[in-house]
Amino acid sequence: MNVKLTDAAREAGVGYGTASRAISGRGSVDAATRDKVLAAAEKLGYRTNAMARALRENKTRTVGLIVPGIINKFYTESATVLQDELDKSGYQLVVSTTGNDAEKERRAIESMLNRQVDAVVHAPVNPQAKFPKGFKVVELNRRSDLNRPTVTSDDATGLKELALHILDQGYRDIGIIVGPAELSTARDRKAGFINALETEATQRGIREELRFRVVHSRYSPTGGYEAFAEFRNDLPQIVVPLSTQLTLGVLKATQENGIKISDDLALACYGVAEWLAVWGPGITVFAPDLPAMGAAAATQVLTLLDAAPLPENHLSIPGQLIVRGTTPKV
């Protein structure tokens, strides 16, 4: 039996338009009516004809997500919320990864365009990565040089709070590990953290006491491990890797070299992972709000798909400083 939407509407006792809005998730329908329509559709075995709908709307009802990797919790948490929010509006997520490689990114973009996705949520590698003119793109976590709509973490505020905490605890010799200089996340985190350190140290009259060293590396445990070698023969009081992946590498390096956190070396970092709370005495961290970033990216892209103006082109989502046992007072 070929069940039609009109059958589901009749079973639920509503009009065709109401049933259509309830099943598509687009438009205003109260929760009780939506539940009634969905129950009727399930009872009758009604299924939407996605291909016919796409042809009518001239849309594929898919959104691309291009990120460095799906193992990194930074992107899996955001992607999960992004998919949930898009699903409510009848869109599916198509994911491609770049491994932070510009050539892989170019191929990922080409693949998304060949699939005729309606829009892309993108964590840029190449700051000049190109899409066709007028194509709908929202940048997540990172920003390009092309002034596209973006959703990023408010790292400036969060890293300022982290810097103040480190100075409050008495640390003056600080080792900083950041990602590749060509990525906006690395540049922004480095600038925000160092500016906060220098400004606050000047205000406190301790600028001459402040010493910090910065090492750039790949966003990976191997990158963190290799970067820590720069400090091994001249340990700072505290090391601050500005990503969770970098932190994993630092922990491996300190373990191999018999360096005890927090006795020999204090540690604070940037990122989100459950193990940060349970490793040793717990690691002090500035944690971006990844679910909120994913939800904001969904809102941005759905607004673009509706051809509506964005209230704000660039959204900066607050995170949280979480103080734990790896930053004891000096």
Rank of each mutant, 00 (worst) to 15 (best):
L5H: 06
T6F: 10
R10C: 06
E11W: 08
T18C: 12
S24R: 07
S24F: 01
D30T: 04
A31R: 14
K36T: 03
K36Q: 12
V37N: 12
G45C: 02
Y46Q: 10
Y46R: 03
A50M: 14
L55N: 04
N58I: 03
V67N: 00
K73D: 02
L86A: 08
V94P: 10
V94S: 09
V94G: 06
G99D: 12
E103N: 14
K104I: 05
I109H: 04
L113T: 09
R115Q: 15
A119F: 01
A119L: 02
P127M: 01
Q128I: 04
K130S: 15
F131R: 08
F131A: 07
G134K: 07
K136C: 08
R143Q: 08
R143K: 10
R148W: 13
P149A: 11
S153R: 02
S153C: 08
L159G: 00
K160R: 13
E161K: 09
L164M: 04
H165Q: 06
G170L: 08
I177C: 01
R189N: 11
A191H: 11
I194S: 07
E198W: 13
R204L: 13
G205M: 07
R213K: 15
V214Q: 06
V214T: 13
V215E: 15
V215N: 08
H216L: 11
R218F: 07
S220M: 02
P221E: 11
F228N: 00
E230C: 09
N233C: 05
Q245C: 03
L251D: 01
A253H: 09
A253T: 06
G258K: 11
L265C: 02
A268Y: 01
G271K: 00
A273R: 10
L276E: 05
G280A: 15
G280R: 12
I283E: 00
L290I: 02
P291Q: 07
A296T: 11
A297V: 05
T299N: 06
T299C: 03
T303P: 09
A308Y: 04
P309E: 13
P311Y: 13
P311G: 13
P318G: 10
L321A: 08
I322V: 15
V323E: 14
R324F: 09
R324S: 07
T326N: 01
T327D: 05
V330E: 04
